[in-house]
């Protein structure tokens, strides 16, 4: 099965998923009652009227975690090809990746010690 046959199936699947959700929504349009009322449009905060702006400020630690993740996630991109082919490669390439992981870990240790990972 060729490259295009394989990936066109993935594309078709994505379209199928879209259609699935879309038909469900159409079905509910047809079947469900629909009565617009002002109170229904209010954000739900356990029955109380919403207080303040409807956008809460998110704590900065979430962004920090996101940044740390971003770096690690992208580094795994380099580990993927290595993990597949390392057995057929020269010895020093094998150790280079170990070194790479070690450096990466140094970064983690640094972040840890700096308190990036503390969830206070």
């Amino acid at each position: 099965m060729s490259f295009y046959d394989q990936w066109s199936a993935i594309l078709i699947a994505a379209i199928a998923g879209f259609i699935l959700v879309f038909t469900a929504l159409i079905a509910t349009r047809i079947l469900a009652p629909f009565a617009r009322e002002r109170a229904k449009g209010i954000s739900y905060e356990c029955g109380m009227l919403p207080i303040g702006r409807n956008w809460a400020q998110v704590h900065v630690r979430y962004y920090l975690i996101a940044i740390v993740f971003l770096l690690f996630d992208v580094e795994t991109v380099f580990i993927f090809p290595w993990a597949i082919t390392y057995l057929s490669l020269a010895e020093f390439i094998f150790w280079q990746m170990i070194l790479f992981i070690a450096i990466l870990s140094l970064g983690l240790v640094y972040a840890w010690k700096r308190g990036v990972l503390e969830w206070k």
């Binding site: 900065v60 962004y63 940044i67 991109v77």
Partner: peptide, 17 residues
Amino acid sequence: IITVAAAEVGLALAIVI
């Protein structure tokens, strides 16, 4: 490039924060 771009975004976001 993907890697560097990720690092760049990480850094820039840190500065924005």
